[in-house]
Design a binder for these strands. Structure first.
Lengths: 353, 353
DNA sequence: GACAGTTGTGCAAACGTTTGCAGCCCATTC
DNA sequence: GAATGGGCTGCAAACGTTTGCACAACTGTC
């Protein structure tokens, strides 16, 4: 009963209609359909539907060197931030007939290289890279090979690279500004990896924010994590606490790290936001359900994915266009994790309610 | 400067070494390498590395009818439950040289069909389907076409289908048992779509659980949502509340729906777990950070993905093997959203503290 | 009625592999 | 020393498309 139906080819249709395979090819290809008489075209189309023809993409790709396939590299699929991005990418690409090959690199360089190799081997028409470091081998390789690609949610040092990110520096400033307005003066920072643009620029935004608010940087209130994870956030918070300097707020480089801070505050018996305010970054799904609901900067993740895909398509069509670096505007979402500074503040005066 | 390096082919290597292309092919293919003299093989390998040879996968696939590609269909990439699953899949497949094409179907049938068509067109070697309904056209199509496939996290009515799921019925029972032990007698249920195995079986587990605990089903305490979403969970909770029957606990069909219940409780001014206990299902990432931390049934999502991939590989290798329906054991994770029943309970006795 | 121009179709090569078959060479055996 | 056999390698076809080119058939013009 295992009747693997025999594949229908152009030749079959041609024979059926009484015409040459190349004619069938022309009919079935939108770009060349006009070349053949309507009468014949109709018969071909009819026959192809009747027989249930499906083009053999391998043969097509072999001939044309186009795979209608795009590679997507993400660092960690369990991070809920990447779901929306991929969804956005898939949404726009599938409309143009492209398929999306996803790969998870776990933030390990070796895997990234292997992935990009694999992608080249499969001759993807383009790449969307959400794993890029500020200085990234993979990116330079792609530049050399001339593969169209765009960075999502990350940017690199070198110029002339397509990317779509949210404006991290502005985002960082908004956070500090918000806290300053509430009256916070001692604002700690749990930084992300500085070799990632997000980690680096958000920190720059924080610094700029302090300056804007007329506050001075206290290096004892800054700790840098090695990864954008809960655990690294917790470790960083522990380090800051260990410095024994008073502070009334912690800004974390992303939502996951903020959760790590939550944990550390709890173990120290500190309440958020009563004792310490906490801010995250990304507004990943369900942050509003956290305890307390997390004040954070909303990054339009779905949009990032969609725009990245659109730009990639542009580049695939016209490779010689100048690169675009798109910056989406983030916005602050104030929730329950930030409030007016408490007794813990530098003044030593207990603020009652 | 746009020096798209010319692709190196078998022929190039052959010429370089002074040997026939077919010999090169045999050397580079692990299965046939032993056919050729070590001396020549070494020279071929050397040359291929030197020239930077990359096989043309299209030509290979065209010839062999194998794409080393697997399709994965998920209903909603923004649901954090699917990240881990895909990660698991990718982990094991990439080790065997397979690439993963992901597609998001938004739970709409039309898109599912289009996706599976696309997959067939691309001649994926197999499919992992996380979108299946209990009665599913796509699944029957795949059965007919003879495409190897395995369902992840879902199962269907028909027999002889590969699947890996968690034991939903047992999970459902565990929840009720837990609540009954705490002393709950009026336990409401916010059901998921009954056309999905997860929705159906978890509900069956609930019913069985009631029976085990000697409790009677009150249909006014059950509402069925149309989707596994927060919003549908909230709507269902609203409907149950509207029935005006007392209850001390709500069991939701998944974590997202449980969050919807949280919302409804808040708007009604009810506290969880003091007034009403809430239980979810899935243990998706970060449930422990919710307010309150959600008691839920842990589904080993990463494992589901990995096992699904493994079974799929088995089927690709040996298509004639009988189907496997793997059930992973779930376990209950008790957190802060469940407690002893309150004043709201049927007895009318207010439990203090 | 011959010519140029246009339009539509067929021909065949090419894309880069894999693989059954044929044939060569060399070693082994009687 | 001839026959047998086994181990390596080359040959060529095939996978299913796409596409430049040639050619046939028409249209319209002088």
């Amino acid at each position: 009963m295992q009747t693997h139906k025999p594949r229908i080819t152009l030749k079959d249709i041609a024979r059926n209609v009484g015409v040459h395979p190349s004619t069938v090819s022309r009919v079935l290809n939108p770009d060349t359909r006009k070349m053949v008489t309507k009468r014949i075209a109709d018969r071909v189309i009819h026959a192809s539907e009747q027989l249930g023809y499906r083009p053999n993409t391998f043969a097509q790709s072999l001939r044309t060197n186009r795979s209608y396939t795009v590679g997507v590299m993400v660092p960690d699929l369990t991070n809920p931030a990447f779901g929306p991005i991929i969804k956005g990418i898939d949404n726009v690409l599938e409309q143009s007939g492209y398929s999306v090959i996803v790969t998870n690199t776990d933030n390990v360089l070796e895997k990234e290289k292997r992935s990009v190799d694999k992608f080249h081997e499969r001759q993807v028409d383009g790449l969307i890279i959400a794993t890029a470091r500020r200085l990234d081998d993979v990116v330079t390789t792609c530049l050399e090979e001339g593969t169209p690609f765009v960075l999502a949610v990350r940017s690199t040092i070198e110029k002339g690279v397509n990317s779509v990110v949210s404006d991290e520096i502005v985002g960082g400033q908004m956070i500090v500004s918000h806290l300053a307005q509430l009256g916070h003066k001692k604002i700690a920072y749990v930084a992300g990896p500085q070799f990632l643009s997000t980690g680096f620029e958000r920190y720059q935004g924080y610094l700029q924010g302090l300056k804007n608010a007329g506050l001075k940087l206290d290096e004892d209130l800054v700790a840098i994590g090695d990864a954008f994870t809960e655990e690294e956030g917790r470790q960083a918070a522990i380090m800051i606490n260990a410095n024994q300097k008073p502070f009334t707020a912690i800004v974390a480089a992303n939502d996951l790290m903020a959760l790590g801070c939550y944990d550390e505050l709890i173990t120290k018996g500190l309440k958020c936001p009563d004792d310490v305010s906490v801010v995250g970054y990304d507004d990943m799904p369900f942050t509003r359900h956290f305890n307390p609901p997390l004040t954070t900067v909303h990054t339009p993740l779905l949009d990032v994915g969609m725009q990245a895909a659109r730009i990639l398509l542009e580049r695939i069509w016209k490779p010689e266009q100048p690169a675009r670096a798109l910056k989406l505007q983030p916005h602050l979402i104030v929730r329950g994790s930030t409030g007016i500074p408490s007794s813990y503040s530098e003044t030593g005066t207990k603020v009652t309610n």
